[in-house]
Amino acid sequence: MLTILDKYILKKYLSTFSVMLLLFAPIGIVIDVSEKINKMIENKVPIMEILVYYFNFTIYFTNLLFPIFLFLSVIWFTSKLANDTEIIAILSSGISFTRFLRPFIIGASIVSVFILLMGFFIVPKASEGFNNFRYTYLRGDGKQVMRGDATDVFRQIAKNEFIYVNSFNAETKTAYNFSYERFNKNKLQYKISARRIQWNPKTKNYTLYDFVKRTVGEFGDKIEKADQRNAKFSFDLEDLTPVIYIAETLDLGKLNRFIEKERGRGSSNINIYLVVLYKKYSIPVSAFILTIIAVAVSSMKRRGGMGMNLAIGIAIAFSFVFFDKIFGTLAEKSTFPPIIAVWFPNFIFGILAIFLLRNAKR
């Protein structure tokens, strides 16, 4: 059962974290607007789409920098408790440092569950809207939604099947400059090409415009042409999108199925998808580690006051983000195991948390 002291600290924990989010989110929006306003005006972006974009941006931005916001908020209010000698009074009353930590752990649990659910269901949708806007209006010409860092997408969808598209429009579910190649014992069996290909959700097939099929024969090639033709293929709609951030736009169930499918195909980008999956679990765990570090660092009254604690906190927080990004990139670009890369920062800072906690107890 929570005591008055537990409720007081828990209230401070959650309220300071919320205020930190409310303070930094508008700053992030203002900086983003100042950088992109000229491009938005140039492409005549509708005001409603801008509002939706910044709603998605806020979710994407806060989820990305969640460890820093949480860490600084705990540093801030715990340092204030220490400077006001409230912590000394609490510990002098006979309460152990471990017992003093309990409301912080409860607060970290609440935040972790919230971040976990957001990462499973809310952030993927926000990420999709955020990236679609970027590639439509900020990198594109306002007409085509480019789903990746490159406009050309070439993928092996089966052992003997390959597809290529120049670009993909996520809103109309249309790909441009499409080609499909099927091989038999390393020899081209036939090739289908189209100026554009569109997915039909009702009939579960594709419509190809300016259809051309070339079948390779022993004594000559057979060529078929049509202005429009419906066809079914073995690939999914997601296969027409670049692989750069597709995993970020899938909720937990779809992401697991997508990874299994890509693993079965022997995809060379499987590490990218696994990093996204493992981070959904590792980021909430970091809430506990960063909370313990923040309390251990800021619970002591220092000569430099709150400013010194904040300086130490900022250095540790950015070190955590630095390690997280470095090892994440290492897993994506090499054969380094993704699960080790994602959890390694938590492991290192977990050891640091234990060391600082023991020192704080003394």
Rank of each mutant, 00 (worst) to 15 (best):
R147G: 01
T207W: 08
R155A: 05
E128S: 06
A175P: 12
G119W: 07
E224C: 00
I197A: 06
V212K: 08
T136G: 03
Y176I: 01
K191P: 10
D141Q: 01
W199Q: 08
A194P: 06
N184Q: 13
K125L: 14
N186K: 14
E181D: 13
G220F: 05
I223M: 06
G142Y: 09
G217M: 09
L116I: 06
I106W: 07
G140D: 05
M118C: 13
Y180K: 07
K187M: 10
R196I: 02
K185E: 15
I105N: 02
D152C: 00
F219W: 02
Q144G: 04
Y180P: 12
G142D: 02
I122V: 15
S109F: 15
K125H: 13
Y137S: 01
F120R: 00
G148Q: 03
L116P: 04
F100C: 02
V165P: 07
E161W: 01
Q198A: 10
V111N: 06
A194S: 11
R155T: 12
F178Q: 11
Q156D: 00
I197W: 06
G140Y: 05
R155Y: 10
V123S: 05
Y180D: 05
D221P: 02
F154H: 08
P124Q: 03
F219D: 13
I163D: 10
R155V: 11
G107A: 06
R134M: 00
I110N: 06
A175T: 14
I157D: 07
N200W: 07
K225M: 15
F154V: 09
R134V: 05
L138H: 12
A108V: 09
R196Q: 09
F154W: 13
A175W: 03
F121P: 04
V165T: 05
D152G: 00
F219S: 11
G107I: 03
F133W: 09
S127L: 03
K204S: 12
S167N: 12
D152A: 11
R99K: 15
K225A: 12
R99G: 03
V216W: 01
M118F: 14
N132W: 03
R196W: 06
F100W: 07
R102Q: 08
S127W: 05
K191H: 05
D149K: 15
N205T: 09
M118A: 14
Q144D: 08
K187N: 14
F120E: 03
S167K: 10
R139Q: 09
N186H: 11
G129Y: 07
N205M: 08
R182G: 00
V216A: 01
A226F: 11
A158G: 15
K125P: 11
K213L: 14
G129L: 08
G119A: 07
K213Y: 10
A194D: 01
I105W: 12
V216E: 12
K185Y: 02
R134P: 00
N184F: 12
